[in-house]
Each structure stands twice: as structure tokens, then as C-alpha cells.
């Protein structure tokens, strides 16, 4: 799981030190190591692949430009995601198109099959099969639409936990908030997601 991989990473520390000395190969290795995970988190936050690619690029440019100032007070992993999440949140706040898309996202593209699958999922008492759920495109679409109806901070916390797999301490470090804030924000986000999905039925 990602969270386990992201514990204090000795390899990261070595690469960061090399990067600080101007080693371009180390820089490239750090990019290759984290580009997919950072892109994936950004994409889930902003939904547009083009914007996500631009923001990922911007994130790494900022990481490389600031790496000399990185003091290892937190791990490179959470520091890098902090830059990515902050850039994405700023982008979301600035971008009027995004707001429009967010407001409309629940009203388009939801099929009858999707609504039925959601109804079955929410009413069924049995535990669903994660693999089958992942293969159900309609449910995936509903999950994306529901995420987009959350406010930015709630969306960020739930994506860092349930998609990137960070633990609460790492999320607190990324978002620069207290552990209790992560706990309550995550709980409210899940509760809100439940309400949004029920409203879709």
C-alpha cells in the first residue's frame, strides 16, 4: 500500500541530497518515482487530464526549484504532495470553468444502469466485492461526480486517504492542519458523500 511505501524513505533522502548538489539523474529518478501518484491525485481533484498534466508539471518544476530549501523537517513525500495539493487547490479556486463543471457534474452522464447499481449498493446489507466495484464503470462515474460535489478541502482529504492511501499524520503534514482536523474533515466528507449519493437516487 502507498502509505507503507511512504514512510521515512531512505532512498528519497539520498536522491534529495544528490538533487541538491545538482545531480540531474537523481532529479529524474524522483520525477519518475512520483509522477504517476502525483498526477493521479491531481487528476482526481480537478478531473481534467490536460489541467492535471499542467499542474503535475508545475508541481515538479516548483519541487526542483525549491529543493535547496527543503530541510527534511517533513518527508520528501509529504512535502512534494503539499506542493501538488496547494497548487491544485489554488487552481480550483481560481478557475471559473472548474466551478461551473463542478456544479454541473452531477447532472450529466449518469445512466439508468448507474442509478440502479448505486441503489443496489446502498441498500444491500452484504459487503460489496472491491474488484467488481472497480469494474463497474457506472459506479466509478458516480463516485467521480460525487467527489466533485464536495468542497475542495473535503475532496482533498478524502483523495489523499482513499486514493493515495496516506495515513492521518501524513495528511495532516500535507495539508498543514492538526490531526483532529483531518479526522473530523474526513468523517464529514464521507457523510456528505453518502448524502450526495442518496440524492442521486
Amino acid at each position: 500500500m502507498h502509505a507503507e511505501m511512504a514512510q521515512v524513505d531512505i532512498a528519497d533522502a539520498i536522491l534529495v541530497e544528490r538533487c541538491k548538489r545538482g545531480d540531474s539523474a537523481a532529479m529524474e529518478r524522483l520525477i519518475l518515482k512520483y509522477q504517476n501518484r502525483i498526477y493521479n491525485v491531481i487528476l482526481k481533484m480537478c478531473t481534467n487530464p490536460h489541467d492535471a498534466a499542467e499542474l503535475t508539471q508545475e508541481t515538479f518544476v516548483k519541487i526542483i526549484q525549491s529543493i535547496a530549501k527543503f530541510e527534511s523537517k517533513s518527508s520528501f513525500y509529504t512535502w512534494a504532495f503539499r506542493i501538488a495539493v496547494n497548487l491544485t487547490l489554488n487552481f480550483c479556486q481560481r478557475n471559473a470553468r472548474f466551478e461551473l463543471r463542478s456544479l454541473n457534474s452531477g447532472d450529466c452522464g449518469r445512466s439508468r444502469e448507474g442509478t440502479q447499481a448505486l441503489s443496489e449498493l446502498l441498500s444491500d446489507d452484504s459487503s460489496p466485492d472491491p474488484e467488481k466495484m472497480a469494474q463497474n464503470k457506472e459506479l466509478c462515474e458516480i463516485a467521480v461526480q460525487s467527489l466533485m460535489k464536495l468542497d475542495d478541502e473535503q475532496r482533498a482529504v478524502i483523495i489523499l486517504r482513499d486514493i493515495e492511501g496516506m495515513n492521518y499524520a501524513q495528511i495532516a503534514d500535507v495539508l498543514q492542519v492538526k490531526l483532529g482536523t483531518v479526522r473530523s474533515r474526513l468523517s464529514r466528507a464521507r457523510s456528505r458523500l453518502r448524502e450526495i449519493m442518496e440524492a442521486m437516487l
Binding site: N36, M133, C140, I163, R190, R194
Partner: peptide, 29 residues
Amino acid sequence: QFQKIKMMVSSLPHVKSPREMVERIKASL
């Protein structure tokens, strides 16, 4: 309910970044 919500979100497909990302970053730098 919470477990189902968590499962729905965590089962979203993992998408890879564009192939030329490293080159784009280098060019931008």
C-alpha cells in the same frame, strides 16, 4: 455505509501521467 463509500472512492482506476512528463518538466525548467 462508510465502508461502501470508502470502497467506491478507493476503487477508482489509477491513471498514469502522460509519457513525456519528464521531458516536459525539463523543458519547462
